Amino acid sequence: EEAIQNFKALLSDMVRSSDVSWSDTRRTLRKDHRWESGSLLEREEKEKLFNEHIEALTK
Rank of each mutant, 00 (worst) to 15 (best):
1 E>D: 01
1 E>T: 08
1 E>K: 10
2 E>A: 07
2 E>L: 09
3 A>P: 03
3 A>E: 09
4 I>R: 13
5 Q>R: 13
6 N>H: 06
6 N>T: 12
6 N>R: 10
7 F>P: 06
7 F>Y: 03
8 K>A: 01
11 L>P: 04
11 L>A: 03
11 L>C: 01
12 S>K: 15
12 S>Q: 12
13 D>T: 04
14 M>R: 13
15 V>L: 00
15 V>S: 02
16 R>E: 09
17 S>I: 00
19 D>E: 11
19 D>R: 06
20 V>M: 11
22 W>N: 02
22 W>Q: 06
22 W>I: 04
23 S>G: 07
23 S>K: 12
23 S>W: 05
24 D>V: 07
25 T>Q: 11
25 T>A: 15
26 R>N: 13
26 R>L: 15
26 R>S: 15
26 R>M: 14
26 R>D: 12
26 R>E: 15
27 R>I: 08
27 R>D: 14
28 T>Q: 15
28 T>L: 14
29 L>G: 02
29 L>I: 06
30 R>G: 09
30 R>L: 12
30 R>S: 14
30 R>K: 14
31 K>C: 10
32 D>G: 00
32 D>W: 00
33 H>I: 14
34 R>V: 05
35 W>E: 09
37 S>L: 10
37 S>Y: 10
37 S>T: 13
38 G>E: 11
39 S>A: 14
39 S>G: 14
42 E>P: 15
43 R>S: 15
43 R>T: 15
43 R>P: 15
44 E>T: 11
44 E>K: 13
46 K>L: 09
46 K>P: 07
46 K>S: 08
47 E>H: 11
49 L>T: 03
50 F>H: 09
52 E>Y: 04
52 E>F: 00
52 E>L: 06
53 H>G: 01
54 I>V: 13
54 I>Q: 09
54 I>A: 04
54 I>W: 01
55 E>H: 06
55 E>L: 10
55 E>M: 10
56 A>R: 12
56 A>H: 12
58 T>V: 08
58 T>I: 06
58 T>F: 04
58 T>R: 14
59 K>I: 07
